[in-house]
Design a protein around this nucleic acid. Structure first.
Lengths: 155, 155
DNA sequence: TTGAATAGTTCAGATTTCGAAGTATATGGC
DNA sequence: GCCATATACTTCGAAATCTGAACTATTCAA
């Protein structure tokens, strides 16, 4: 049966194959996140992982392709739980910098480690394949961030 | 600034780079789906794309890494809107086969075409890179479906 | 024939997300 | 310096989404 599915997928265009793989991996990773011993929501985990250094909320919103109000809610929760602190950006006092606390750093390190293992398990790729996949993924991400907000957007 | 982000990403592990790329692409694709002229929800689009041939709801649930009740709701909506029909599986009368109607086939063809273009635009990869990415994505998807339901699952 | 397992359904509750309106600060033209 | 406009984030209520437990119908095994 898996072979059957696989062979049928082979007849689809590369783009659709790629999309289906991306969706499967995304769903699997999200699912696996539930198994991590933590009371963090998925969005909170994503934000922690992205905070490798202090960042403005607007940058995070663009980076996570979401809306400012969602970032506010997530940051509120993380701040309340002691993982990060808001600091005014000295270069623009309208903006906040989100800075991890020590507790936040620890949580982030744990998450990055576990997430890496999850990726290995879920993908089943060896080191070489992972490196190649990562190279293409980085290229894709660069392109998306460069392209920015959806270009064919409505409204 | 994009270069700065990119160079910092380079210092992360390949697994995390890969994950961030996958998340960016997933989010971007989901966002782009909103721009398609259709009244279908994302989940409904995903199901249509997967119905390249009649499938049992349980198969779809496993394939989309979700729960049966979600499949029921999505299938209800698509059936009501005339995109598919339920047929009893002759091999197991407890199960339904979801079969696309003519209207469903048309919608699926449109979606597959548009989704392919979306992938090209979002990823910015050329044909060769897309083929390589698709190869790895297929491998990942095979591994995930083979692994099946989360193995380290709780509850 | 009966008990256990499986395929799908129902439905109410929880979570998540979004968008419009609001506050505070910045920027540019006069 | 002053005003209009733009930007960064917040608030909050509505909408969409997803889930899990309990239920019906059918199959399978003994």
């Amino acid at each position: 049966m898996p072979d059957d599915i696989s062979s049928r997928l082979g007849r689809l265009t590369p783009e659709i194959q790629a999309m289906m793989g991306v969706y499967a991996l995304y769903w699997k990773l999200e699912e696996s996140f539930d198994c991590i011993e933590t009371d963090l929501s998925h969005q909170e985990c994503h934000m922690l992982i992205k905070l490798d250094q202090p960042k403005r909320m607007g940058i995070l919103a663009a980076d996570m392709l979401t809306v400012p109000s969602t970032i506010t809610a997530t940051a509120d929760a993380l701040e309340e739980a002691g993982y990060l602190a808001r600091q005014r950006d000295p270069e623009d006092r309208r903006a906040w910098l989100l800075v991890l606390t020590e507790q936040g750093e620890e949580a982030r390190n744990m998450l990055v480690t576990v997430a890496g293992e999850l990726f290995q398990t879920a993908s089943g790729l060896n080191a070489e394949e992972t490196a190649e996949f990562a190279r293409l993924a980085r290229k894709i991400r660069d392109n998306i961030l460069k392209t920015g907000i959806p270009e064919g957007l409505k409204k």
